[in-house]
Write a protein that binds this DNA or RNA. Structure first.
Lengths: 142, 142
DNA sequence: CGCTTATAATTAGATATCTAACTGTTCGAT
DNA sequence: ATCGAACAGTTAGATATCTAATTATAAGCG
């Protein structure tokens, strides 16, 4: 697969991330959600009364993509959108009781999954790993 | 963003991989390709006369997705498909001259990108990084 | 003020991916 | 030798994502 001197690190990274994301999504589906739903709930929970632009930035998707998820989740009764009276351009997103409940369920699933992912990996190795991830982001931002 | 004791490693991994993949795709677009086109060319080149099932496995996508890319690339004149006379179920994929040329161009772009990605990261750190990636795949496969 | 520019969100349309169902081909077991 | 299971690929339809264009609102400036 590699007509290169060294195995390209981006390919390894991308492949692993895909497998991990698929496994995580499967775990969330089992718990009654999906990965994008979880990320949306998490971003709304983590920032009281953020607007959609900020939420999308937190998740790492575009505003248009978030609109799409919010439409579905609003239709499912997981959250509400209302205009900010102070600035009528922005929509304030809030979880309903059902949204809060799903958040809690998925949070448990996420904790279990995170534990599974860390199996056999001591904190210091994971810390070094996170540093390399940060360096890769740096190298790519320029 | 994290109502967790520790920052979940999957999220960090996913976010970084996405940024890296987007930057890589941008570099490939600049060189006249895209990420899936590059991966397809690479898989065809790396395995003389593989069938589509094997190619898809190499890339890490489903057969149906590969069919989609092959249709487009065949229409663009980058490759050809013909039935294997030995087993008429399988389609053998081969690059045209244009496909070979694009492969070479994108390979150069990939080399440049890989070098950019490695900036400031000595081989030993990258080796440890790759080991953790492998461990994560292990932890998720179970 | 009134006009231009900037901002927040949505809409429209494209691409990449998946799963499930279908088509065609081969193989194996009776 | 035939028929059913397995296999390779395609097709159909869904989801997630992106960019570009549009709508509505706000802010700045002359």
């Amino acid at each position: 697969m590699t007509p290169f001197e060294r195995p390209p690190i981006g390919m390894n990274l991308g492949r692993t991330a895909k497998l991990v994301a698929q496994a995580f999504d499967a775990a969330l589906v089992e718990a009654g959600g999906t990965l994008p739903v979880w990320l949306t709930l998490l971003s709304v929970k983590s920032s009281k009364l953020a607007n959609q632009r900020e939420l999308a930035g937190m998740i790492g998707i575009q505003g248009a993509t978030l609109t799409h998820h919010l439409n579905a989740m609003e239709a499912q009764g997981l959250l509400t959108r209302r205009r900010d009276p102070v600035n009528r351009r922005v929509h304030l997103v809030e979880l309903t009781a059902a949204g809060e409940a799903l958040f809690e369920t998925l949070r448990q699933a996420a904790l279990v999954f995170d534990k599974r992912l860390r199996t056999g990996l001591p904190d210091e190795r994971l810390a070094e790993f996170a540093k390399v991830l940060a360096a890769l982001r740096e190298n790519v931002e320029s």
